[in-house]
Structures are given as structure tokens and as C-alpha cells.
Design a protein around this nucleic acid. Structure first.
Length: 864
RNA sequence: GCGAGAGUGGCGGAAUCGGCAGACGCGCCAGACUUAGGAUCUGGUGGGCAACCAUGGGGGUUCAACUCCCCCCUCUCGCACCA
């Protein structure tokens, strides 16, 4: 029956179906009846071409989207461009191309690449954040936040990246380096716009406990970043002065054990209270500490903890004890109040400091059943215990003393309960060109005046000279800078900084719900229908930055009355990295594989090291270009491999042989269908009530088991690798079964079961490899395309088996396999098992001490 | 140091609720077809000659442990002078 057929030509199949989908508007968002589902992948920066990380990210999203579409859901699956950013500007500086031209050309190219991947986006909703139609709403939202005082301007010390020549937000500094280029960050004093994300610190933290669909590690990272500490603040009056030093502590229970005070190098009181004879010493120490601050942030362990006595004393608000005030290099001005009460007996760092400078140690908490002797301690005691030397709270537990002492402070009006966060407000000013202009005008008379709503958007001018040096390129455009004050009409200047591009991506998921709306950033009714995003998919690198900003925006926009939900993303999938083996020469570092032919370095002929698998990156010379792979094997194979080689959240090892394997599999599916196409086209579908027996019955059951497995793997676990492997198993079974089809008529049960199985394979494969599925589906004579065909359903009756083969263990070791009726009761199973020759032999003359039977699963008997 | 996750054949990985460890794929071996094979099809493939031994190591619970409990090791990621 099998006949020779044309070869699987992925090129023609894929381009044909991409054109068909486009022509038919196949993936336009519809209000299907099956309930809404918003699946979103993080939109890319249009750097020029997609990389394997994108391929993986978007393949995962496309499986979800196509699966749900086939299940009749109303699916929103949009794509767009995070299109403002530095690389465009750098390209302009280096190659003289205007950032807009560079960006839009890149977008065109990358859109083409995504289309060649066959992704089911509704391109009618495409957004690009660099278009005025988009960024006018950035400006609109900025003004709304400004009105609510959630956007404000202040002069402060900020992170400055000299390489990028711009300011960075705290979230964008990693280990003291720029997140983008890795350059060590400097500090500068600048006037900057901030978003008051700290106003939402508590809610942002609180809701991390209400996001069960997020990976725990992302939530933990966000909690760490927010860094809430609960404790108390207290005032220590400075002896002989009107000033007092306000401290924050998480250990108010140790307040009676304070023996000195530490101030940060930049603490404003330092200058006022330092004794004249110590001024010089303190000042030089402070200068040194400030200079060292950067190193401190990068590697705190390498910097010696030091301090210098100011000559001043302050008074413990509860005991009246007089304690010396030190300036210390480890106290951070940015955290708490910039002053720390030092309790050497119960804080390790204070302990070391006290020992170093010969300061007293006073124990106020004893371990249960012990008494601390400060003379003999060699480390601070930081655990809870029983209060001593603490006046009114002596004898109570230290955990209870926290509250008791805080109350004492409150009674004395010398302090109160306090909460501190590590989270800082989000600095959004950027001294670069290719970003969204901040809609503010400065007037000498009226100050910072918002641009009126009806004058939005403030258009980014084109005639700007880009050098990469100095401040804000926009300042060089006279036409842009000069403006009339909206308030008094007088001469005024526009703000020349642009917004952090993370602002653009903090609400783009909302624009997708109303991409063409011209009165508002999005329509409330459409947001109510589509939001929150049901499944968000992207890389872990945005665990804090983008995902925290987007959560903040969602809450702020809610409080502006623009929508009514609390969190933007119900479920979050952080996909693993795409990795590949590297080649490395001891002397010449990373090499391209072709530079190490024969296992030796092309430059020095020394043997190279291979085997280590690392994240694909240009610098490691282990990148695979998706275009090459898609050209050679096709989009279907590329998608299939990235989904098959590892579960989505794990790292993926790129392996060309594995790609070959996926290609072979699709070839097998192709031949299975095309070589039997005549028979398959003539065969009529199965109908209920047919009696199916023998190997046909087995294939029938296998088909339905596969449908069940693939369905459950996709919808319950996102385990696409096991879903694909079970399709492969069914294909293997079909190849076996094929030999029985010889001479069978199209109306035979065998042919009909075969047809059902082949069709199931094609439909189950469609979310993973959509082009080949459409092509084969059509060749089998189906009128409706796959994307309009329902997802196959399994029948419980088909899946159920009459007999099962179960392993029989004797003393824990499998000794036989026995066929028993499915669902057999223990007595029946036992009698069948004991009749087995092997088992009878092993148990003869011995007592069966225990007989364990797990229905349809296993028998284990203990024999002695 | 704290927190999260991981450790299974030559490799990627599977085992969903404590029930046959190694599905599926790669690689490798053999055979078939073929002028040819880097195409395709079929079969084999954890180790050991075997009894048996095997899921990072050691204990434990259980009829039964990759899975649960205790101790330890290694790796990845995050946090870390945060008062």
C-alpha cells in the first residue's frame, strides 16, 4: 500500500502556510466563546536580529496560544517592540544612521524573522514604544503620576554610568556595575525625576505572597529587593548640643546595651558635633570612606571596618548613659537614618569594632540558662534570650522586650516603632536622546510646569547631534528646548532628559488591549476583559527590574482609576537560558569552533578545552544564528527542537545532532502521512460502538492515551518535552502498525483506526510544528485548516483496558509479569499471580508473610 | 553566612500521588535496502560472565524510596557591612 512520495520540503511548506495564515487573518484576536486567555511573551529590543533566546521564548508562547485557540478560547497573543534604547543611539554615533531609521529597519527585519517562525501573533496589535502614538501615552501617564505626586523631581546622589553616559536606577546596578555594559558605576549629584515606587513598597511586598503562579525565586528576589525591616527609631541627644541623633534599629531589645554610636561618613550632623580638635581627623576619614564607598559596595569583605572618634558623646534615651560617637565607614547614609546604635554584645560587627577600639561591651540578653560574661565573649550573642541589665524589662524574653522597649521610647517621646525599606524611589531621568521626552517645561517664574494634555505628544526632534559625550543631546536642539511656559506664556525651556526605557515596558501589556485607542492609553472595558495577563513568559534577568516596575505601574494606574486590578501577570514562566558548548584556548580565550579544527588552537596549536556548556553569547563565540538553523531545517524543526530538548524553565543545551533528530522525526511524520495518503483519504472515520480488536484495539487505545497525555502535559504542566516524546511514541507505534495495513481496504477497521491515529498525530503536533501539520492535514483531504479545527479529545472508553500486565515482586524484586483483568479485586489477582509458574516455583514450600496488591499497578509479596 | 533550585546511562532528559528506574531523543553497534549513504527501515544499547549492582555520599522509615525523614558533599542562581 505504501507508495513513494515527494520529500518533505520545509521551505515551500512553511512559506506557503505563512502566506495562507496572513491572507486569512488567521490569528486576529476574536471574542471566541470559550473564555479569554491573554498569553504574552516579553517583547524584544529591536537589536537587528532575533537570537536563540527569543526563538525559545516565542516558541513556548506559541504552543500555549495555538493550543488554546484550538480549544476554542478567546486568545490575545500580541507582539511589539521595546524600541527606545541606547544601542540605536550608539549605532547612530558609530555609523551615522539616525536612531529612528536604524530602529525601524531592525523592526522590519525582526518582524520578518518572527513571521518566518510561524508565530501566531495578532500583528494588527503590534506596538513600537518609539512611535509617537505609543510614547504620547507614556507622557500622559507621567503627567497623571505627576498630578498624584507619584512623579517628582529632586536633587540627589545618583548612579552614573560613564560608558553609557547616563544615570541608572538602583535596580539597574548589579554589583556596582551597569546592568547593560558592565562598567563600574560612579556617583553624581544631579536633579532627577523619580517615580515614587516606595509609596507601594508595602503592597508590592504583600502581594508577592498572593502570586501562586510565579516562580518562588522571582518572588524571593523581589522581597529581597524591597527589603523590609521592622524595628524602632530612637533619638540620642548629643551632649552639650540641641541636636539629637536619630537611629533605626531592628533590635530595640538591645537598647540598654548600647556602648557607642556610629555615624555614616556623609551624615549631616557629623560636621556639627565633631570636637574642634578632632575635625581634621574626622574629615580626612570621611573623605577616605566616601572614596572607598564604591569598593565597599562591590566587595564589602575586602574593606577593613574602621571608625574614628568624633570627640562627641550622646545620651541613651532610656538609661541616660553617655556613649561616644564615632564616624564609621560601614554605616550607609542611604539606609535607615545613616546612624547606628552599637551594641557589641549582640551584634557581630559592633563586637569586632568594639574589640578593635577598646570600647566596652555590655550584655543585655542572656542565652537560656546561661549568663554572658562580656570579658570572655569571643563573638556577639545574636540569638533571642532573657533580658538582663535592662532596668524595667529584666527577666522577660528578648522577643517580648522588642515591643516593651519600643513602648518605653514612645512614652518618653524619644522614638517609635518604625519600618524601613531597602527599596528606593525609581530614578527615571536619562541623559540620552533615543527615549521618551519628559513632558515638563521649566519657567523662571512658574517653575516646573507640566505640558498640557492637549499638547501631547512632546515629539522627539530629529535634528539632534549625537556624540555620546556630555549631557542630554536634546539640549542641543534649539527648536526643541525653547518653549513658552504653558502657565504664564513666558520664555521657558523644555526638560531635555528622556525617560528610562523601563517606563515604556511597564505598561505595554495594557496598550495591547486597545492598541489603536486615541483618547486614552487603553480602554477600561477592554482591560477589564483581557487583564490580567494569564501567562507571561520571559527570561529571569527581569526578575527585579521590569517585573517590579510593571507591578508598580499596575498599582499606580489602578489608583489613578484607569483599571481595577492589582497585579498584571497571573502566571509567570521564566524560561531557562539557551546554552552551547564553548571552545577555549588557554592563551587565546574563547574560540569559534572553526578556529579549533582538529582540537587545537588555530593561533598557537595548543590543545583546546571543550565540553563546558555556557550561555550563548557573542563574547563566548558560541552563538547559533536562528536564521541559519531555520533556513537549513525549517521553523518547525527549530521550534520542535527547542521545545523537546528540555522543559521550558530549565537551561537548554543547543546541540546540532539533536536538531537533526527533530528534523528526522518530522520527516517520519511526513512519510507516514504522504506514503499512505491514498488509503487515508478514502478511509471513513471511526464511529462509536464499533468493535475493535487485537492490534487495532491497541493502536486505538494508544491514540487516545497520547491525546490525553499531550493535552495534560500542555495545559497542566507546560511539559512540552514529554508531550512531544509521547507523540513520537505514537508515531513509532504507527510505523509498526503500518505493516499490518497491507492489503487492507479503506473501510476496514484497521484503516479507520490508522486514520484516526494519523490525524491525531497531525493535530497534536500543530502547536509545536504548525506548518507541516497544516500541509499534511490538507493533503489528507480536510477542508478546514488546522487552526480552525478543534483540539482532539480522548475517549475514556478507548483509554480503558480490559487487561493489564503488572509486575510481581517477591521480596522487593521483580520476578514475573502477570496479566490480570483491569481493576481486579485482591483475591482474584492473588490467585492469578500464584498460578504463575515462576512465582509458584519461588514460593513453593515457603510462607507468604505478606501480600501487597496495588490495583492495576503492582504486586509485592514477602516470602520466607 | 542566609535564601531558592539542582545532582539519574557516553549526552539531553523521563518517571504526574511512595509502586517495573532510565520513556523519548542524540550517540553508538548490528542487519536490511541501495551504484552509494551523512537517506530510509528493522533490531540492540546503564554496569557486571553471572548471582547481582545502580538515581551525588551516608544513615533511617516502608512490603516497596529518584520520590518521605535526618546528616554530609558538589554545582547553579539570588541576597549579603541593610543596623
Amino acid at each position: 500500500m505504501a507508495e513513494k512520495s515527494e520529500r518533505y520540503d520545509h521551505k515551500s511548506v512553511e512559506s506557503r502556510w505563512q502566506a495562507e495564515w496572513e491572507k486569512a487573518g488567521a490569528f486576529r484576536t476574536t471574542g471566541a466563546a470559550g473564555g479569554k486567555y491573554y498569553v504574552l511573551e516579553m517583547f524584544p529590543y529591536p537589536s537587528g536580529k532575533i537570537h536563540m533566546g527569543h526563538v525559545r521564548n516565542y516558541s513556548i508562547g506559541d504552543v500555549v496560544a495555538r493550543f488554546l485557540m484550538m480549544n476554542g478560547r478567546s486568545v490575545l497573543h500580541p507582539m511589539g517592540w521595546d524600541a527606545f534604547g541606547l544601542p540605536a543611539e550608539n549605532a547612530a554615533i558609530q555609523h551615522g544612521i539616525h536612531p529612528a531609521k536604524w530602529t525601524y529597519e531592525n523592526i522590519d527585519n525582526m518582524r520578518g524573522q518572527l513571521k518566518r517562525m510561524g508565530l501566531s501573533y495578532d500583528w494588527g496589535r503590534e506596538v513600537a514604544t518609539c512611535s509617537p502614538e505609543y510614547y504620547r501615552w507614556n507622557q500622559w501617564l507621567f503627567l497623571k503620576l505627576f498630578e498624584k505626586e507619584l512623579a517628582y523631581k529632586r536633587r540627589s546622589s545618583v548612579n552614573w554610568c560613564p560608558e553609557c553616559s547616563t544615570v541608572l536606577a538602583n535596580e539597574q546596578v548589579e554589583d556596582g556595575r551597569c546592568w547593560r555594559c558592565g562598567t563600574l558605576v560612579e556617583t553624581r549629584e544631579l536633579e532627577q525625576w523619580f517615580f515614587r515606587i516606595t509609596a507601594y513598597a508595602e503592597e508590592l511586598l504583600d502581594h508577592t505572597y498572593k502570586l501562586p503562579g510565579w516562580p518562588e525565586r522571582v518572588l524571593v528576589m523581589q522581597r529581597n529587593w524591597i527589603g523590609k525591616s521592622v524595628g524602632a527609631e530612637a533619638d540620642f541627644r548629643v551632649e552639650g548640643s540641641d541636636e539629637s541623633i536619630r537611629i533605626f534599629t531592628t533590635r530595640p531589645d538591645t537598647l540598654f546595651g548600647v556602648t557607642f554610636m556610629s555615624l555614616a561618613a556623609g551624615h549631616p550632623l557629623l560636621e556639627k558635633i565633631t570636637a574642634p580638635e578632632r575635625k581634621e581627623e574626622v574629615e580626612s576619614f570621611s573623605a577616605r570612606a566616601k572614596a572607598e564607598a564604591k569598593r565597599m559596595a562591590v566587595s564589602p569583605d575586602e574593606v577593613e571596618k574602621e571608625g574614628v572618634f568624633t570627640g562627641a558623646y550622646c545620651l541613651n534615651p532610656l538609661t541616660g548613659d553617655r556613649v561616644p560617637v564615632y564616624a564609621a565607614n560601614f554605616v550607609l547614609m542611604e539606609y535607615g537614618t545613616g546612624a547606628v546604635m552599637a551594641v557589641p554584645a549582640h551584634d557581630q560587627r559592633d563586637f569586632e569594632f568594639a574589640r578593635k577600639y577598646g570600647l566596652p561591651v555590655k550584655a543585655v540578653i542572656n542565652p537560656p540558662g546561661q549568663a554572658l560574661d562580656p570579658e570572655k565573649m569571643d563573638a556577639a550573642y545574636v540569638e533571642p534570650g532573657v533580658m538582663v541589665n535592662s532596668g524595667p524589662v529584666n527577666g522577660i524574653k528578648s522577643e517580648e522586650a522588642k515591643e516593651a522597649i519600643t513602648r518605653l521610647l514612645e512614652e518618653k517621646k524619644a522614638g517609635e516603632k518604625a519600618v524601613t525599606y531597602r527599596l528606593r524611589d525609581w530614578g527615571i531621568s536619562r541623559q540620552r536622546y533615543w527615549g521618551c521626552p519628559i513632558p515638563i517645561i521649566y519657567c523662571e517664574k512658574c517653575g516646573a510646569v507640566p505640558v498640557p494634555y492637549d499638547q501631547l505628544p512632546v515629539i522627539l526632534p530629529e535634528d539632534v547631534s549625537l556624540t555620546g559625550k556630555g549631557l542630554s543631546p536634546l539640549a542641543s536642539s534649539e527648536a526643541f528646548v525653547n518653549a513658552a511656559c504653558p502657565s504664564c506664556g513666558g520664555v521657558a525651556r523644555r526638560e531635555t532628559d528622556t525617560m528610562d526605557t523601563f517606563v515604556d515596558s511597564s505598561w505595554y501589556f495594557l496598550r495591547y488591549v486597545s492598541p489603536k485607542e486615541s483618547e486614552l492609553p487603553f480602554r477600561e472595558d477592554e482591560a477589564r476583559y483581557w487583564m490580567p495577563v494569564d501567562q507571561y513568559i520571559g527570561g529571569i534577568e527581569h526578575a527585579v527590574m521590569h517585573l517590579l516596575y510593571a507591578r508598580f505601574f499596575t498599582k499606580a494606574l489602578r489608583d489613578l482609576g484607569l483599571h481595577g486590578f492589582d497585579e498584571p501577570f497571573r502566571n509567570l514562566l521564566t524560561q531557562g537560558m539557551v546554552c552551547k558548548e564553548i571552545t577555549r584556548c588557554q592563551e587565546h580565550g574563547y574560540l569559534y569552533p572553526e578556529e579549533a579544527a582538529g582540537g587545537v588552537c588555530k593561533f598557537c596549536s595548543k590543545p583546546v578545552a571543550t565540553g563546558a556548556v555556557e550561555k550563548m553569547s557573542k563574547s563566548k563565540k558560541n552563538v547559533i544564528d536562528p536564521d541559519g538553523i531555520i533556513g537549513r531545517y525549517g521553523a518547525d524543526t527549530t521550534r520542535l527542537f527547542t521545545l523537546f530538548a528540555a522543559p521550558p524553565e530549565k537551561d537548554l543545551d543547543w546541540n546540532e545532532d539533536g536538531v537533526e533528530g527533530s528534523y528526522r522525526f518530522l520527516g517520519r511524520v511526513w512519510r507516514l502521512a504522504t506514503e499512505n495518503v491514498e488509503l487515508l483519504k478514502e478511509t471513513i472515520p471511526l464511529e462509536p460502538g464499533l468493535k475493535i480488536e487485537g492490534s487495532a484495539r491497541e493502536l486505538y487505545a494508544a491514540t487516545h492515551r497520547t491525546i490525553r497525555k499531550v493535552t495534560q502535559d500542555i495545559e497542566e504542566r507546560f511539559h512540552f518535552n514529554t508531550a512531544i516524546s509521547s507523540i513520537m511514541e505514537l508515531v513509532n507505534a504507527l510505523y509498526q502498525f503500518q505493516t499490518e495495513l497491507d492489503g487492507k481496504e479503506p473501510h476496514s477497521i484497521e484503516a479507520r483506526v490508522f486514520r484516526e491515529a494519523v490525524e491525531a498525530v497531525i493535530l497534536l503536533l500543530a502547536p509545536f510544528a504548525p506548518h507541516i501539520s497544516e500541509e499534511l492535514w490538507e493533503r489528507l483531504g480536510n477542508q478546514e485548516p488546522v487552526y480552525r479545527t478543534g483540539w482532539p479529545r480522548w475517549s475514556e472508553g478507548a483509554v480503558k483496558e480490559d487487561e493489564v500486565e503488572i509486575p510481581v515482586q517477591v521480596n522487593g524484586k521483580v520476578r514475573a509479569r502477570v496479566r490480570i483483568p483491569a481493576g481486579a479485586a485482591e483475591e482474584e489477582a492473588r490467585s492469578l499471580v500464584m498460578q504463575d509458574d515462576k512465582i509458584a516455583e519461588l514460593t513453593s514450600g515457603k510462607a507468604v508473610r505478606k501480600f501487597v496488591y496495588v490495583k492495576d499497578k503492582i504486586v509485592n509479596m514477602v516470602v520466607a
